[in-house]
Nucleic acid binder design. Structure first.
Lengths: 228, 228
DNA sequence: GCAAAAGTGTTTGGACTACACCCATGT
DNA sequence: ACATGGGTGTAGTCCAAACACTTTTGC
C-alpha cells in the first residue's frame, strides 16, 4: 500500500462588485499568516471535512470579509504542484457577484484587512491569485454575452446608463449606445418605471429601470444570443 | 490547532469517442475494488502528491484503459460530502475527445473491464458518474456551437456526411443539411480532396474532406459564431 | 428501375451596423 | 448660455432560415 495522499483542498472566491464611481472591483483580503503574510489575496481557505464546497466558500467569505453572496458559480480548479510554496494545495475557485450594498464592508473595515480593488488597479497578489482573477474576468466577459448580467450587481432601480456603464466596465471596450439599448430591451427583462433620477452633476435626469426577475432568470437559463 | 483535513483528491475523465456506426460513445471501466466493485465507472483515481492534475488524468487513462489522449479539458469539480460512501473525496473531472483509432482498446480488452458505451445506452454507474457524464455532454454540446469540433474525433479524411452525423449525434436534434454545409465551409477550416469514397451499402460516393489544422486551431482560439 | 446517399441555389425576413441631432436639467 | 448626460430612428447590408430536385452509385 502506497503512502497516504498528502494534498490539501482549499476554496477561493473572486467576488466582483460594481459601482459607477469605482467601476468593476474585486474583493481582497490582507493575509496575516504565512506564507505571503501581509500580501493581498483572494478570500478563501481550507475546506472542512464535512461541509460542501459552496458552504466552505460562504463560510470563508463570512469569516474573512463579513459578506454573504447570492450568486456564486464554480470557476476552475487550480492544482499545479508548487502553486503553494509549502504544501500541495489544490484550490477550487468560485466567482460571485454582489450588489453595492456589500460595499459596506469597505467602510466597516477601513483600517483592516479587507478592501475592494478596481480590476485594473490590482496590487500584487499571493500565490497564483492574479491568474485566478484574470480567468474569472474572462469568464464574466464571455458570460455576459450569452446571459443577462446586472441583477446581481446593480441596485434595485437604476438609470439605463448604469447598465451601459457596467457593460463597458466589464467588457472594457466601446460599443454603440443606441444599438446596445435596442438589444437589451428586446429581450424584455428590463422594466421601465416612471421615476426619474438626476445623477450628481449636470445632465438630464433619466428614467429608472428595474429587472423583471422572472424573465431575467428565465433568460439566464435559456441563454440569449448577444453580440454587443 | 484543529484536526488535520482529511479529504482525498481524485481526477476522473469523460472520454468521448465517435464512429458513425456506434455514434457518440463514452469510455468506461469496470471497477474491481470496493466501493462499487463490479460497477461501471469513469476512468480515474487519486492524484499523486507530486504530479499535476492533467498528468494524473493521463496516467490513470494509461493504466486503466491504455489510451492516451491529445485533447483534454477541465470540466468541473465535484465535492459534495457523501458522494463517495467511504471517504470524503473531491473529484476534479476532465473531458476529452479521441479518434476512432483509440477504439482499439475495445478489441484489445474485449473480455476485460474497459468498454465504450453509446451515450444513450449507459449502464448504471458508480458514484455520481452519471451526473458527471451528463455535465460533460452538455459542455460538449455548447462547445461545438462556438468552436469547431471534429478534428479530434474523426479520421484524417472523411466524407462530409460524417461530420454532419457527428453534429447530429452530439446535438441530438435535427438541422438543415444544406445550411449546415454552408455554415461549416464558410469558415474555411475544411479542405476538399479529390478522393471519393463509397460508404458501405448503396448511395452516391462523396468527396473526402480533411481539416486544415492551422485554420482549425486558429478558429478554436478565436471562437466562431455558430447557430446550427 | 429503384433505393440510398450526395450535391446544389434562391428567396425572404430579420438582425446588426453605422450614424447625428434634439431634449431636459444644473450651474 | 453652456455643459452634461438622456433620449431617439433609419437606411443599408448581411446573415440565417426555409425549402426540393437532380445526380451517382449499388443492387
Amino acid at each position: 500500500m502506497p503512502g497516504a495522499q498528502n494534498i490539501k483542498v482549499a476554496v477561493d472566491a473572486v467576488v466582483f462588485g460594481y459601482t459607477s464611481k469605482e467601476g468593476l472591483s474585486v474583493l481582497l483580503i490582507k493575509r496575516n499568516i504565512q506564507p505571503f503574510k501581509n500580501s493581498w489575496a483572494l478570500p478563501g481557505g481550507l475546506v472542512r471535512d464535512d461541509e460542501s464546497l459552496e458552504d466552505a466558500v460562504q463560510r470563508e467569505l463570512r469569516e474573512e470579509t463579513s459578506i454573504s453572496i447570492s450568486y456564486l458559480e464554480q470557476l476552475y480548479s487550480f492544482g499545479e504542484p508548487g502553486r503553494d510554496p509549502r504544501n500541495r494545495v489544490i484550490s477550487i475557485t468560485y466567482y460571485g457577484l454582489v450588489r453595492p450594498d456589500a460595499f459596506d464592508v469597505k467602510a466597516d473595515t477601513d483600517a483592516s484587512d479587507v478592501a475592494w480593488f478596481n480590476i485594473k488597479k490590482l496590487p500584487s497578489l499571493a500565490f497564483d491569485h492574479t491568474t485566478i482573477i484574470s480567468v474569472a474576468h474572462e469568464r464574466l466577459k464571455s458570460k455576459m454575452l450569452y446571459q443577462p448580467v446586472g441583477f446581481e450587481l446593480l441596485e434595485e432601480k437604476f438609470p439605463f446608463s448604469e447598465l451601459e456603464k457596467l457593460y463597458l466596465a466589464v467588457l472594457d471596450r466601446p460599443f454603440d449606445r443606441r444599438n446596445f439599448k435596442k438589444k437589451i430591451t428586446k429581450y424584455g427583462f428590463l422594466e421601465e418605471t416612471n421615476e426619474k433620477q438626476a445623477l450628481e452633476g449636470a445632465g438630464r435626469p433619466g428614467n429608472l429601470f428595474r429587472f423583471n426577475e422572472e424573465k431575467y432568470f428565465l433568460l439566464k437559463k435559456e441563454g440569449i444570443s448577444f453580440e454587443i
